[in-house]
Computed example of a mutant assay.
Amino acid sequence: MAKLSFLAGFGAGYVLGSKAGRERYEQIRRAWGQAKENPQLQGLAGMAQARADAVVHSVKTRMGNETPR
Rank of each mutant, 00 (worst) to 15 (best):
M1C: 04
A2K: 06
A2N: 06
A2T: 04
K3R: 06
K3L: 05
L4R: 06
L4S: 04
S5H: 07
S5I: 04
F6L: 11
F6T: 09
F6V: 07
G9D: 01
G9Q: 01
G9S: 02
F10R: 03
F10Y: 03
G11V: 03
G11T: 07
G11H: 03
A12H: 01
G13K: 04
G13F: 04
Y14C: 01
Y14R: 02
Y14M: 06
Y14K: 03
V15Y: 00
V15G: 00
V15P: 00
V15H: 00
V15Q: 01
G17I: 00
G17S: 03
S18F: 03
K19S: 07
A20I: 03
G21S: 02
G21F: 01
R22F: 08
R22H: 09
R22A: 11
R22N: 09
E23P: 00
E23G: 00
R24V: 05
R24Y: 05
Y25Q: 08
Y25G: 03
E26K: 08
E26W: 06
E26I: 06
Q27W: 05
Q27Y: 07
Q27P: 00
Q27S: 11
Q27T: 13
Q27L: 07
I28R: 10
R29T: 11
A31W: 06
G33C: 03
G33Y: 01
G33K: 08
Q34S: 10
Q34T: 09
Q34M: 10
Q34F: 07
A35M: 13
A35C: 08
A35N: 06
A35W: 11
A35P: 01
K36G: 01
E37V: 06
E37S: 13
P39V: 02
P39S: 05
Q40F: 11
Q40T: 12
Q40I: 07
Q40L: 12
Q40M: 10
L41V: 15
L41W: 08
G43P: 00
G43M: 07
G43R: 11
A45I: 11
G46R: 13
G46M: 08
G46T: 08
M47H: 14
M47P: 01
M47D: 14
A48N: 09
A48P: 01
Q49M: 15
A50I: 10
A50C: 07
A50H: 09
R51K: 15
R51F: 11
A52R: 13
A52V: 10
A52L: 14
A52Y: 11
D53W: 08
D53H: 12
A54K: 15
A54V: 04
V55N: 09
V56I: 15
V56R: 14
V56A: 15
H57A: 15
S58T: 10
S58G: 12
S58C: 06
S58Y: 10
V59A: 13
K60G: 04
T61L: 10
T61G: 07
T61M: 11
R62D: 11
R62T: 10
M63Y: 10
M63R: 13
G64P: 01
G64D: 02
T67L: 09
T67D: 13
P68A: 08
P68K: 05
R69I: 04
